[in-house]
Design a protein around this nucleic acid. Structure first.
Lengths: 224, 224
DNA sequence: CGATATATGGAGGAAGTCATTCCACTTACG
DNA sequence: CGTAAGTGGAATGACTTCCTCCATATATCG
């Protein structure tokens, strides 16, 4: 079932198909960087086409966003399903968190779709129903194997992911991997017990942390 | 140096002074709940006065926000200064984090002022210069006393606070204390080593976590 | 090559939001 | 009771953003 309104049997003209791809690429880039508030004019400009061309291909903004993020959201949902095959139950959980966060931290639009948007609400809801049991399984296994503290539940994890990816989005341009630093700290807090702390992601220059804050300041209008 | 433009020697008329207070109270409430994007019309409505009355008292929105948050921001800066007197160096650090977060989590406007706003930029900058050394001191003492892992630096803490208060603001209406749960996890991750995990803030019903997410969804338009 | 359906761009309409102002009216206070 | 001070809320104007129109351009096929 295509998302586009007019789906002919006839294929798109060659140049039109080229433009469609350019639009999707540009939209992915723009929404990842600026979030869903980005204008379709901005997307069009980034694609090197006019706005009308975007609207000819996608009935409205929601449809474009839907087409873009369906895959991405679904991919994250899948991560939880395939994680158990990744080493022991602790490693599986960590692997899932890292993979999911890597995607959400590099993509502001993705976080916004998952957390807050009214875009494709029903579809997101369906994904959530699928992802929750998979996370529960990861969590329960890591707990019964004695790795993960037993006072957390599956639902804690999407919340922690949201928290971290907020930071990730905020500092994406200045220090794209800064979030790993805090994920490590949180993971150290999630273990049942431990001796020495795990190695943190090292930030090249100490002052870069301050720079990250200042950058957030600059881009604030669009993020909050 | 007053913030208001017209500061007469003459005191305000009694009813005007009453209204000024009503406006400040209402603004505090509205900005805390909705963030700085709230309209001055909303503030006026909450105060039970007309917009013009707000403008008669404060030259513009920035001035109102400045008047409101100067104290709050300053108060947080002070927390870092007085923290050392609170028990040992670990307890001092924890006390500071809890107190600061309690304020930021209950007040969306406050986080927005600190993180991102263009409101009273210079003043915020000054506060930052004052707060950074105080935090560094807390951190260094907790490290040299062997409580706090030595691979974190002072600048990590504002970042973690931001992360947590983002969550706090998001879930403020559904579960106002939910953030404490994740602060505990992070604190457990910040200790040099530990045996059993610390007791988490317990959420009454398990499903409330999901409810928090759904609520975020609902209020998304205003938060992102 | 030339006919024609398809595709295009970017100006601009329409609808909204929100900070701020104006002014006819009201109220406190000496 | 006179008047300076204060007030409400409609109106203004400067945005922003989604989306459509249509004159022009281009691919495709006989």
């Amino acid at each position: 079932m295509s998302i586009e309104t007019e789906h002919h049997d006839r294929p798109l003209r060659a140049d039109a198909e080229r433009n469609r791809t350019k639009i999707l690429d540009a939209a992915a880039k723009v929404f990842a960087e600026q979030g869903l508030d980005a204008t379709l004019d901005e997307v069009a400009a980034a694609a090197g086409v006019g706005v009308a061309t975007v609207y000819r291909r996608f009935p409205d903004k929601d449809a474009l966003i839907g087409a873009l993020f369906d895959n991405a959201v679904d991919e994250i949902a899948n991560l939880a399903s395939v994680a158990p095959s990744r080493g022991n139950s602790w490693d599986a959980l960590v692997w899932f968190l890292e993979e999911a966060l890597q995607r959400q931290c590099a993509n502001r639009g993705l976080r916004e779709v998952v957390v807050g948007s009214t875009y494709a609400l029903d579809r997101i809801e369906a994904v959530k129903c699928r992802i929750a049991p998979a996370i529960d399984l990861l969590v329960e296994r890591a707990q019964s194997d004695g790795y993960l503290r037993t006072d957390v539940v599956g639902a804690d994890f999407p919340i922690m992911e949201m928290m971290i990816s907020f930071l990730g989005n905020m500092t994406a341009t200045v220090a794209p991997d800064l979030w790993r630093r805090y994920l490590t700290i949180i993971l150290d807090g999630l273990m049942v017990s431990r001796g020495a702390p795990s190695a943190l992601y090292v930030v090249p220059v100490d002052t870069m942390l301050g720079e990250a804050l200042r950058s957030a300041h600059r881009h604030a209008r669009r993020s909050l």
